Structure formats: C-alpha cells, structure tokens
Amino acid sequence: MTVSQITDFRAEYFFTWVLGTTNIKQLVIELDTNDIKRANIFKRKEILHILRKLK
C-alpha cells in the first residue's frame, strides 16, 4: 500500500471490515517503503497510529 492509500479515511473501515468478515486472525499489509521514506513526519505518524489501532 502507498502512503495515500493507508491514510485514506476509508482504509481503516476496510481493514475492520476484512477482519470482521473473514475467519483469519492476522492481516498482512504490504507497505511501499520508498513511499514512506518520502512522506513527511506527520503522514508517518498517521500511518503508525492507524497500524496500532489495528493491533
């Protein structure tokens, strides 16, 4: 996923929906590291916040 995809307001709802409708315990999310490196500090903090909420 790119920074813009994971920080989109709909992404959190999508992750919650996937975890609620499937019978899996873990969800694997691939992040574009180059895109994260280019992102500013505020977007990086937002990504961490979203990922911690999913935990």
Rank of each mutant, 00 (worst) to 15 (best):
M1K: 10
M1Y: 10
T2L: 01
T2F: 01
T2E: 01
T2W: 00
V3G: 03
V3W: 04
V3C: 08
V3Y: 04
V3L: 05
Q5R: 08
Q5M: 08
I6Q: 03
I6V: 13
I6P: 13
T7R: 00
T7V: 02
T7I: 04
T7P: 00
D8Y: 11
F9M: 14
R10M: 10
A11S: 12
A11V: 11
E12T: 11
E12Y: 03
E12M: 09
Y13T: 14
F14I: 11
F14M: 12
F14A: 15
F15C: 09
F15N: 07
T16A: 08
T16R: 14
W17T: 13
W17K: 12
V18T: 08
V18L: 13
L19P: 09
L19E: 12
G20V: 05
G20F: 04
T21H: 10
T21Q: 15
T22W: 05
N23D: 15
N23P: 10
N23Q: 14
I24A: 09
I24G: 07
K25D: 11
K25Q: 11
Q26Y: 12
Q26C: 12
Q26N: 11
L27T: 09
L27Y: 05
L27W: 09
I29H: 06
I29Q: 12
I29G: 11
E30N: 10
L31E: 04
D32H: 08
D32C: 09
T33Q: 09
T33H: 02
T33V: 13
T33E: 13
N34R: 02
N34Y: 02
D35I: 02
D35A: 08
D35G: 06
D35V: 02
D35M: 04
I36V: 09
I36W: 00
K37I: 11
R38C: 05
N40A: 08
I41H: 07
I41L: 08
F42K: 05
K43C: 05
K43S: 15
R44L: 00
R44W: 00
K45H: 04
E46D: 07
E46M: 04
E46T: 01
I47F: 05
I47M: 01
I47R: 00
L48T: 04
L48E: 07
H49V: 01
H49I: 01
I50R: 02
I50A: 00
I50V: 07
L51K: 05
R52F: 15
K53A: 05
L54Q: 12
K55S: 12
K55I: 06
